[in-house]
Design a protein around this nucleic acid. Structure first.
Lengths: 129, 129
DNA sequence: CATCTCAGTTCCTTTGAAGATACCGGTATC
DNA sequence: GATACCGGTATCTTCAAAGGAACTGAGATG
């Protein structure tokens, strides 16, 4: 049998999956869980700028998709742990690479942006025959 | 020296980079260019469901960021090639992995979704002391 | 002359995800 | 009694990004 799923096909369910992975905060949350279980407040502090609403939403989605488990302990003050599942850890591998790429290539991208535009628009990069 | 950039910091420029990578169609376009140069119409046909407007926007952004080059040949009918730069090819590695992950784990995610909800909401996954 | 192709552009509408802000109940501590 | 901690909700607003549909120009083709 060949490939079962192909993201290039308009109606392939893998597109939905890709959409989830690409959601604004998924990369952050998954990466933040790389070293083991973390509490809600820890995550919120670690992922600077995320609002509790969005963090909750993201975690719920990840939980639904089987990437994260939520465990709440009956202590005082309350404690809730989030942890990557096996599936979540398998996604961590690509997403950590993406994160690292972003961190490593900031200068390259900034340089490219700065260099863009100066290029002559009329002659352009046009190649004549 | 330590890490220069950290996506977890609120104002880190790597966040902008991550945002670009995470844009709806970036994964598709970068993956579609994995085997070498492609023309606009080829890309449009290959990435099913993408509109010309969005494809243009995505390509322009990738070009600005130095991930893709655009070469237009003065032929008839017009020909324009898009190709990954070295930087673009370095991004292809993580993004191909993301794509593959999405294609491979559709069943896992569908299963997790189906299994979600049935779990008792009152007792929940709560762990008592 | 009519039609096709390529590589887009233009205009308008929509929408869904994200942001801001405020609030909640229970506990324990000052 | 006031305040702080924890893990969230609730509500409202916003807005960038995506979608849809039609259109362009210049030359090739029938």
């Amino acid at each position: 049998m060949g490939k079962a799923y192909n993201v290039m096909a308009a109606t392939c369910p893998s597109r939905t999956v890709l959409h989830r992975i690409g959601a604004r905060w998924t990369v952050f949350v998954v990466n933040a869980l790389e070293d083991g279980p973390r509490r809600f407040t820890e995550l919120k502090a670690h992922i600077q700028g995320i609002t509790p609403k969005v963090l909750t939403e993201t975690l719920r989605t990840l939980e639904q998709d089987g990437l994260v488990t939520r465990t709440s302990y009956d202590e005082q003050p309350p404690r809730v742990d989030y942890e990557l599942t096996g599936l979540g850890r398998s996604l961590l591998l690509p997403l950590r690479a993406v994160r690292q790429w972003a961190e490593e290539h900031v200068p390259d991208i900034e340089a490219a942006r700065a260099a863009y535009g100066p290029e002559d628009a009329s002659a352009g990069a046009t190649v004549g025959p």
